[in-house]
Design a protein around this nucleic acid. Structure first.
Length: 763
DNA sequence: CTTGTGTCTGTTTTT
DNA sequence: CAGACACAAG
């Protein structure tokens, strides 16, 4: 016990040992949040206040859940497998599998990822003859998801005009389609389990009595539905309500775009009668200058709960800032710095390259590849999102759930087997008439179309028969073969990578089976095994005895269903080699919760970071600022920031101004690093001041590439105008006597100015 | 029905 | 610069 608590500071100790009431912990970046959470769980169990089964811990990412489990088992010699620790989506999936009957779902229901959801919506619109110009599928998807995120069904949504009424109508139809096909989208996992619990009293009471302590990580990221879910699960407002221990940081709320509502923190404080709000403000991660930069930047936001991080670590080094002339050169400069760091003995895996959007990784990857620096990209195109993997998965989905029309359509003619648009049209007509799935409608299609469709059915049935007793990994092999996916890619020029990925799918299946505790020879189709374990059965209203959802996984779903869920919910975070000491590349979003010795924040330009779309959204810029705050606070010892005058985007060069966030950083904490030689050429000058110091070693080489004679105005030139402020020349037209320039003045927009008339100052 | 070519468009962040 | 989609030729 003592050694459990002895490393905690005063605030942390207070949080960990709070009485069994709901509490809100405002945990700043790097203040030991995860440690407080896990120690709290360990403390509750070790002091005998609750058994492991009475704990429910929710996170947002699989990474965070895994981290928590790992730390817990390091702390205590208990079996964490039975514990309810996971993401909202993962836990809801489990709940729905265990109670699929009560939730009105087939045992083998499948989960749509965003891609699948969008194509399901497109299919619906086509079938209903809806003009997708007028009702863009993306907008409908957004509409449906945000309704669900608020806990609203179609019937609950108020529509004030015809346009919105159409959306509501389509929402309703979409839900019907999903129900018919036995599929659920991400938001549906939550909404469905919320409805399950609120409708079903015995179930609700069972779980409410069971979970004495509910712990929520990253509480600022909860949406309305998740908040309601927590209220229901904890029995908030009832006499024996469970205690909710919420840990969050309003300054790190970066998921408003998917419905997260920071207001939940205040609501929580009131509705859960929080008596204990503890702030963790001692930062153990970053050196002083880095922390100052973060604190001063975030102070520009208006709606904050108020919190300031402090550190004992001393100032440390200043933040290094570099202005590049192009995205290519930015990448080169980064490589140069990374090489220096590595030469100085920094470990590659302790260096992170962060960017605002995934598309930015390309240039960086290319540069890293050419310099043979090992790196690892997180996010972006994930393993289970690759086309060939989605195809293979669709075969498996179809075998597990014949009525999944999405899966059916994806593979019925891939690889091509002579089933074209005409045949499918016939099939869809038949399905509509019979009110059944495409698969079930095949017998109703006559003629040539019918026979090629029948051949496909035979293929699926054959594969099902062949694999009925095989374990998952063997099943995957059979499917790759029977579907002719491998053969297909063998005849394709660029198919080698895809085949390699398909082979990795077999390894992924093997790994999954062993990690989830299934036997390596458990048949993939083997359904829930009703082995009642003491204390895990519930008697429902209609007197049926069912399993509690925390019974062994095998009691809740078959290996195949579990694997398919895994594919949708985890998307294969990365398939890169884990052990290698490699540079870390990721978006700022996926860097949340991580920390590194050295961090590069790249592409700090207006339009990119803050992203241009954010300007149009309510509170958008503040969210971007929080994102920047997250980025800065990832760094322990050294922080670099860079931006570029030009950048290739959507196939054309864009001229950007440097990010407004630079103006919000404290001068003392910043060191401008752009080369003097270039400055003299008028190329790199920065309005703030002259460069702080002579270029560091290694920069001269870059500088030479860019110092060129100054020939008056040029595209990309930064300028200042008395009325419009700072801008950048985007295009120059005319010549001789009258030269006019298109200049992007940021918030003043684009102006066409005559260079001989307008009083412009070169910057 | 398939395949290739062309045009178009739409671009943030993620469970 | 992609990926999605449409259309024409094989």
């Amino acid at each position: 016990m003592q050694n459990l608590l002895h490393n905690l500071n005063e605030e942390q100790l207070a949080a960990v040992t709070l009485p069994a009431q709901s509490a809100l912990i405002l945990a700043g970046a790097g203040s030991g949040k995860t440690r407080v959470l896990t120690t709290r769980i360990a403390w509750l169990i070790q002091t005998g206040q609750v058994s492991p089964a009475g704990i429910l811990a929710v996170t947002f990412t699989n990474k965070a859940a895994k981290e928590m489990l790992a730390r817990l088992s390091a702390m205590m010699p208990i079996n964490t497998r039975g514990m309810w620790i996971g993401t909202f989506h993962g836990l809801c999936n489990r709940l729905l599998r265990a109670h699929h009957r009560d939730a009105g779902l087939p045992q083998t229901f499948q989960i749509l990822d965003s891609q699948d959801q969008l194509s399901a919506i497109k299919r619906l619109l086509k079938q209903m003859n809806v003009d997708d110009e007028k009702y863009p599928p993306r907008n409908l998807m957004y509409f449906i998801n945000s309704a669900k995120d608020q806990g609203l069904r179609a019937k609950d949504v108020e529509a004030h005009d015809d346009y919105n009424r159409k959306f509501v109508e389509l929402y309703e139809l979409y839900d019907h389609q999903c129900q018919r096909e036995g599929v659920v989208d991400f938001a549906e996992l939550l909404l469905r389990s919320y409805e399950l619990l609120s409708r079903n009293q015995p179930l609700r009471e069972h779980y409410q009595q069971r979970f004495k302590h509910i712990l929520v990580d990253e509480f600022q990221d909860t949406n309305d539905l998740q908040y309601k879910w927590l209220k229901l699960m904890s029995g908030q407002g009832q006499i024996n309500a469970g205690a909710v221990f919420a840990v969050g940081d309003d300054d790190q709320s970066i998921y408003a775009f998917r419905g997260a509502n920071v207001g939940n923190m205040q609501a929580f404080e009131h509705e859960f009668r929080v008596q204990n709000m503890i702030k963790l403000e001692q930062n153990y991660r970053s050196h002083g200058h880095i922390l100052d930069a973060a604190n001063i930047l975030i102070a520009n936001n208006s709606k904050r709960l108020g919190k300031n991080l402090r550190t004992d670590a001393g100032h440390g080094e200043q933040v290094r800032v570099f202005e590049a002339s192009s995205d290519l050169q930015e990448a080169q400069w980064i490589i140069e710095q990374v090489k220096n760091l590595i030469a100085e003995g920094w470990s590659r895996s302790e260096i992170a390259l962060l960017y605002r959007s995934n598309a930015q990784s390309r240039v960086l990857e290319h540069a890293l590849f050419s310099s043979a620096i090992p790196y690892r990209v997180y996010g972006g195109q994930r393993f289970f999102e690759r086309a060939e993997i989605k195809h293979a998965i669709a075969y498996l989905q179809l075998m597990d759930n014949l009525h999944n029309d999405s899966a059916f359509l994806r593979v019925v003619n891939f690889p091509t087997r002579g089933i074209g648009a005409k045949a499918l049209e016939q099939l869809q007509d038949a399905a509509r008439q019979q009110g059944c799935s495409l698969y079930a409608a095949v017998p109703y299609v006559a003629g040539k179309a019918g026979s090629s469709l029948n051949a496909f059915i035979k293929l699926i049935e054959g594969a099902r028969f062949e694999t009925q007793h095989l374990p998952l990994q063997e099943m995957v092999k059979v499917v790759l073969d029977a579907s002719s996916l491998i053969t297909h890619y063998q005849s394709e020029k660029e198919g080698a990578d895809r085949i390699e990925n398909l082979e990795q799918l077999v390894s992924a299946a093997t790994l999954f089976v062993s990690e989830e505790g299934y036997g390596l020879d458990t048949p993939a189709f083997l359904g829930p095994q009703a082995q009642a374990v003491a204390g895990t059965s519930i008697t429902t209203a209609d007197g049926v005895e069912i399993m509690d959802a925390d019974a062994p996984l095998a009691a809740v779903m078959s290996p195949l269903s579990a694997f398919l869920s895994h594919a949708s919910l985890e998307a294969g975070d990365n398939q890169a080699q884990v052990g290698q000491d490699a540079l870390q590349l990721m978006t700022v979003h996926s860097a949340k919760g991580l920390e590194f010795d050295a961090v590069f924040i790249t592409g700090l330009e207006e339009g990119l970071f803050p992203h241009e779309n954010s300007a149009k959204e309510e509170g958008g810029v503040e969210e971007e600022r929080r994102l920047m705050y997250v980025a800065i606070t990832r760094a322990r010892k050294r922080l670099y920031m860079s931006f570029s005058q030009t950048r290739m985007l959507h196939g054309q060069t864009r001229y950007n101004l440097r990010s407004r966030f630079f103006d919000e950083l404290p001068d003392e904490a910043i060191k401008w690093l752009s080369p003097k030689i270039a400055q003299q050429a008028g190329w790199f000058a920065h309005p703030k001041a002259a460069w702080d110091e002579a270029p560091e070693s290694g920069n001269n080489k870059i500088a030479q590439n860019f110092s060129r004679p100054d020939s008056g105005w040029r595209i990309g030139q930064n300028v200042a105008h008395a009325k419009f402020g700072e801008g950048v020349i985007v295009n120059i037209e005319g010549g001789g006597g009258s030269t006019r320039a298109h200049i992007n003045f940021g918030k003043f927009g684009m102006k066409l100015l005559d260079l001989s008339v307008a009083k412009l100052e070169k910057l």
